[in-house]
Amino acid sequence: MSGRTGPLSDVRVLDLTQALAGPYCTMLLADLGADVIKVEPPTGDMSRSMGPHPADRDGCDYGGYFASVNRNKRSIVLDLKTDAGRETLFKLVKTADAIVENAKTGVMDRAGVGYERLREINPALIYAAIRGFGDPRTGASPYSDWPAFDIVAQSMGGLVAVTGPNGSGGFKAGPGVGDIYPGTLAALGVVSAIHAARRTGQGQFLDVAMYDAILALCEMIVYNYASGIVREPTGNGTAVLCPFDIFPTRDGAVAIAAPGENHWKILCEAIGRPELVTDDRTRNVNRRVANAELVRGILTEWTTAHSTREIVDAIGGKVPVGPVNTAKDIFEDPHPKARGMLVEVEQPGNNPPLVIAGCPIKLTGTPSGIYARAPRLGEHTDQVLADAGITIARKEQS
């Protein structure tokens, strides 16, 4: 693994986040080259204790969860409940472009390290917050003081209500979308605000509410409802395109999307039903949507008679198609390896390397990448302080 080569190599971020939403935000910034300093309390980020754990627990104080979203970061321990800890943070703030936190509303203010205090120290500082329901500085929500997790954001933002089988009460998405998408938007906000600060010399406060982010992700339900249409779970299909579904195969499942007339024609020929191209029930996408059950039935009859591999071989590259991959399938697929999406990272202690998901943002001139494993708690405290020109005995930091 090489050093920081991404387009943000001249950016320094103080990361006061825990769990997933905040660390995912700063992970993206670090993958893009930013010097991300993870400021942890003496007990560490809560996610350090979450598995899966390596065999040598003494040599590695974190599991796969922490390893994945805290790569490329340096860890420093500061107890912000103490005067010494806060004073050290204030000195670090002078050297930073941005600070990111995802505490509940008011927590950082009560600790004496909120936006207004840090702005006094560094007027160009970008202060980014990720909260369940936002911060009163950008819009006071009646739920501002409520705690929130991924599943709450998915539910309140509308995602659950449109996910799952027809007629169900809704299903949550498998990944932590309620954390990861807000974190992604926050990373974009941080980069945008730094750009503005370097032009004007003035920093600013920004926040992303998890509820807001999922609502934005589900933008389709908004304009539909405003038009008098209530979107409900549609299973593995969609109410406006056909075919656009997950179909069972002899040994698994496959996605097929052929709403366009050219793809539909190719698909009909591939399954041995060319007459469907001119059949009044299926001759265009509107007729196929109106007769979706017929279309799905015909395609299911074909897919269940073949293996997933046979189907992909028959129409791959001609019609949008893809197997429903498990993690095992992904590890065996040449695409993720070719694209650098499965990255082997060393682990501390007497532990073998761990494979984690790579950075999907690919740049040719200033490449992103994973150049360092996640840090042990406080691993870089002395180094970070020295870089910032701070000479304080370790015992005074906490």
Rank of each mutant, 00 (worst) to 15 (best):
T88V: 15
K81N: 13
F90T: 00
D79K: 10
I126H: 00
V77T: 15
Y62S: 03
Y127P: 09
N70V: 07
A103M: 15
D97C: 08
E116F: 09
A124L: 03
V77E: 01
E87D: 14
N70L: 10
K104C: 01
I126F: 00
A103Q: 13
I76C: 12
I130V: 14
G64S: 14
D45V: 13
S75V: 11
T95A: 14
M50C: 09
R117A: 12
A98C: 06
A96E: 04
M108F: 13
A111Y: 14
L118T: 10
R74E: 00
V77H: 06
A124T: 01
P123L: 09
L92E: 02
A98K: 06
R131H: 07
M50Q: 12
Y65M: 14
V113M: 09
V93Y: 07
T82V: 07
M46N: 11
G59L: 04
A96W: 08
L78R: 09
A98S: 07
E101C: 09
L89Q: 06
I126T: 02
K104D: 07
L125N: 04
T105P: 05
R48L: 11
T95Y: 01
E101N: 07
N72Q: 09
G63W: 02
E87Y: 03
E116P: 09
E116H: 12
Y65S: 13
V93S: 09
D83M: 02
L80S: 05
T95Q: 14
R119A: 12
D56G: 03
K104Y: 01
G85C: 11
S49R: 14
E120A: 10
A55W: 00
D61V: 06
V93G: 08
S47Q: 12
F66V: 04
E120K: 09
Y65K: 08
V93R: 10
S68A: 15
L92V: 04
G112R: 04
A111C: 05
A129N: 01
L118Q: 13
K73F: 03
V77R: 13
I130Q: 04
A98R: 08
E120G: 14
F90G: 00
R110G: 01
R48E: 06
R71N: 01
T88M: 05
L125C: 05
D97P: 07
L92H: 02
Y127H: 11
